[in-house]
Design a protein around this nucleic acid. Structure first.
Lengths: 328, 328
DNA sequence: CTGAAAGCGCTAACAG
DNA sequence: CTGTTAGCGCTTTCAG
């Protein structure tokens, strides 16, 4: 059996209340007393029992990171990275982090587990219903990498528009006038943002994008490769293709290779996300780097603020960076 | 305030003890009584409070998955996949899962957090000390994807030897006689296994591997590419290169491309792990598929057995599968 | 099969 | 600044 606050109280000769204070609110205890308490605790190998504390305080200090996406692999490179960052942040705070997926969660929305959660970071395509459910339960919500019209929670977003702008700017500066975009059906919000940004920025740059130069495909490499082949087989072949993410861009590169087109001489390729695959390709893939770590940090920071009753910005946009590599 | 067991007791007209039993040990309660209880609970939206339960029972049902590796990205594709599987499994059990990294953990080994953990799955290069620490604290330990000589815990491993065997067999059947291996400095245990297996299997197949055909490099693509260039620039160039994992193999492919060697005609390349990058490369990379999902499941299964006081096999080896693709 | 009652370890008024 | 004390919500003997 682990030692309890009573053991420490007895050994140090102070009341249990004082021991409690020494641990959870040191300032309320005189220095000398505090030392006595800590000494006794040391001797006994005492450490506060979080369960009992949670019970008495009526709060758990427990938060969750919920990944909301439908694909087979939930923890893809992108979310794994955000997740890692949230893990780090939560570890340095007193919050306990539970990581789960929206689907697992939905199966047991009323479980003991979920009841104990005081705040949640929603990553990816969470539904408005899910948010409402949490709010109705008085759970603080922060959303990362998604935006829901009409839903009022703090958002942490990456600068999708800015990223696309960098891409188009870069391609334009390289003299490309006929740029295509290949979008994959992954997160609707993200794809939408990048797509709209592409249309708007190309227009701004006076580049006309013909209808056949904007294509949708499934989110896997092979679909992308096939769609890209069609794109690249056109009479008026685009000289550059912007893939909505790196997987799509990898598909474009595969297509180029299959068609014996040289990258970047015959066709330049750009991706988005700057995932690990970028440097594994040859030539390496130019891509937009997303600061996942920062997004995770901000998510935690905002959640903490919310839980502390402070306010936090309703939308935070994290800057991106273009990594120019051999593919352009 | 949430309803408590007292509210249910009052509304249903039975004692709190019976309500408690109805929820945690239904068989001990007469059918009709049980129904009354559940009805009342339904009406009140009552759900047992896990904290109070943990407090009374003196157990938390809390387990952890600790990832032990030094690299910058902890949740790489491999561990993310195991992690996901453990998450799924734990969600269907009554255990609560905490995911963390060994380094975060080490910084606060005595924290409230760690005290509450009843069992832990160690993923990756955990140290014997860490295991000892857990054991001394009476925490059940299961190890995944690593093996520590002299440390007696249940191990869940992938069939590294079998995988390498498949690789060599495959290459030999394609007529390759001069096969090189490029190993990267990632997990010592894994690299060691694959390396030894390679030496032993090639020998078994009567293939001689010269010293300059076995190289070590750092674990990143660029180091691999450089090392591979040396390998491929030799007079007696190997006709096939086995990369200790997919990242290394991707490096080999880059080197081949830089040297204007065709894959697979001039040099065949094989990887290990069957990660997402395999299909993004062109040609696609032949690789050994590791059943991460199964490894996670088994890890959970064994931990559960341990916690239930049952026994479980001391070593479980998960079969692998060779995915033959265009690179060979 | 069910009930009464004693905790589980800690916190938070309230009093001093 | 410190002590007393009454819970937090549930489980678990021990009786009945």
């Amino acid at each position: 059996m682990n030692p309890t606050i009573y053991d420490v109280s007895r050994l140090s000769g102070v009341s249990t209340a004082t021991v409690s204070r020494a641990f959870s609110d040191p300032d309320k205890v005189r220095e000398s007393t505090r030392r006595k308490v800590f000494e006794a605790a040391e001797v006994l190998h005492y450490y506060p029992n979080a369960i009992a504390r949670a019970m008495a305080r009526q709060r758990t200090d427990k938060i969750a990171f919920l990944i909301c996406k439908k694909d087979a692999t939930i923890l893809d490179e992108f979310y794994a990275s955000i997740c890692e960052s949230i893990m780090k942040e939560s570890n340095r705070s007193d919050y306990q982090l539970v990581i789960s997926t929206a689907s697992d969660w939905n199966q047991t929305p009323n479980t003991a587990q979920s009841r104990q959660i005081e705040g949640v970071i929603l990553g990816g395509s969470a539904s408005a219903d899910l948010v409402t459910e949490f709010q109705s339960r008085n759970t603080a919500v922060v959303m990362v990498n998604n935006r829901l019209p009409g839903v009022d929670v703090p958002y942490v977003l990456s600068d999708e528009y800015g990223g696309v702008r960098l891409v188009v700017e870069h391609l334009a500066s390289r003299g490309h006038k006929n740029i295509a975009m290949l979008a994959g059906r992954f997160s609707p919000y993200i794809v939408g943002e990048r797509y709209n940004a592409f249309l708007s920025v190309t227009k701004e740059f006076g580049l006309k994008v013909s209808a056949q130069n904007v294509k949708m495909c499934d989110a896997d490499v092979e679909s992308a490769a096939q769609a890209a082949e069609e794109l690249l087989r056109q009479k008026n072949r685009p000289t550059a293709v912007f893939g909505a993410n790196d997987v799509i861009a990898a598909g474009v590169m595969k297509a180029a290779r299959r068609l014996k087109l040289r990258v970047p001489e015959d066709v330049a390729v750009v991706g988005f996300d700057d995932s690990a695959v970028c440097t594994m390709l040859e030539p390496e893939l130019t891509s937009v780097h997303i600061n996942c770590q920062r997004m995770g940090e901000l998510g935690m920071e905002h959640l903490r603020a919310l839980l502390a009753g402070e306010t936090c910005p309703s939308v935070t946009v994290v800057p991106v960076e273009l990594k120019v590599r051999g593919s352009t």
